[in-house]
Design a protein around this nucleic acid. Structure first.
Lengths: 178, 178
DNA sequence: TTGACTTTGTTGCACATGCAATGAATCTTT
DNA sequence: AAAGATTCATTGCATGTGCAACAAAGTCAA
């Protein structure tokens, strides 16, 4: 018989009290995931805002542009896991700040060609090391648990959308983390 | 010499190209965490909104009340990882819906006593099984990786705030996931 | 070619959010 | 006891968000 861990409680024990079971939010996996993500994002965003004056949606756009070269809004939407309106606004802000340029694709005039400017590339040269260091801090906090965490995330992300280099738009709606 | 994994790239290789390193957002751990959390939260929120008409902040308040009995806003703030204004508004909505009652603590009149009503308890009896099932679906998707994921989350949450039964308020600010 | 349908990006709108400011109650210090 | 500092909850405000509606461009079939 397998042991009853906090994550997988003994199904026998679950049937015990009908009146109101003692559900602990702190042990609820979706909540834990959301809370951890919110905490990490908060500190990352704070650092980026203070140091570079950009938000996370903007960071995502820049990072994707660096990786992929000139792309359309639709492309960013798929690869950076953001709604198209969010992408559109982030790109506009970045354009206003001079970090990217927007042009119309001549082959298909519905599409935008978003591209890094020299200023954008210069910003990225300062941005990327900070991101790498942030991840390094995370990994050092995680230690050997990092592999396990990442494997779990891969499974959750594999579901229908984002995987390594396999982008697809997502559906559904939810304001914030659980 | 240890192998160079995507998570821990070979430091030698990192020094290769000065112009612009090829940073892949899809492999960036903070992004992966945020994207996975967003996806899970989205589908959870959708289910709860459709079926019960409540939002995630409201769900968190209800879950904590069920676990802890009558509490103040400050208590919820700590245990449910939400800003106090968010808690205050969620509690007000729940009160308007008849699921909780608000009263003034007689010992300390600054504190609120938020309490489940009968309707609130009845709602929870319907709510909790859905949450449990949602978590079960998550676990089944994760399989053996669940333990590793949860261990990683525990380390990230241990930092300064939420742990199993050790609540503390948090600082910093960030709109959404990375 | 024309007309229906689809895709792409932007925007109006309603709503949620975080932060700072506020008012009330309590605690601390003198 | 009085004055100052602190804690708790609420709210005004600016901002970010998702969704739906929209216009422009492209596709496809008759």
């Amino acid at each position: 018989m397998p042991p009853s861990s906090p994550l997988r409680p003994d199904p026998e024990a679950a049937t015990q009290s009908d009146p109101l079971l003692d559900f602990d939010l702190a042990a609820f996996l979706p909540y834990r995931l959301a809370a951890a993500a919110a905490r990490i994002s908060r500190s990352f965003a704070e650092r980026y805002r203070e140091e570079f004056g950009i938000s996370i949606p903007e960071w995502r756009v820049l990072a994707h542009l660096n990786h992929a070269g000139p792309v359309s809004v639709r492309d960013i939407e798929a690869r950076a896991d953001m709604e198209k309106s969010k992408v559109s606004r982030a790109v506009s802000r970045l354009e206003a700040a001079g970090y990217v340029s927007k042009a119309v694709n001549d082959d298909d005039k519905r599409l935008l060609v978003v591209q890094l400017t020299d200023a954008g590339r210069a910003l990225l040269r300062r941005l990327l090391p900070v991101a790498m260091q942030f991840q390094a801090e995370m990994l050092s906090r995680l230690g050997p648990a990092a592999e396990g965490l990442d494997a779990g995330l891969a499974l959750l992300l594999a579901g229908d959308g984002i995987t390594h280099d396999t982008g697809a738009p997502h559906r559904g709606n939810a304001k914030q983390g659980f």
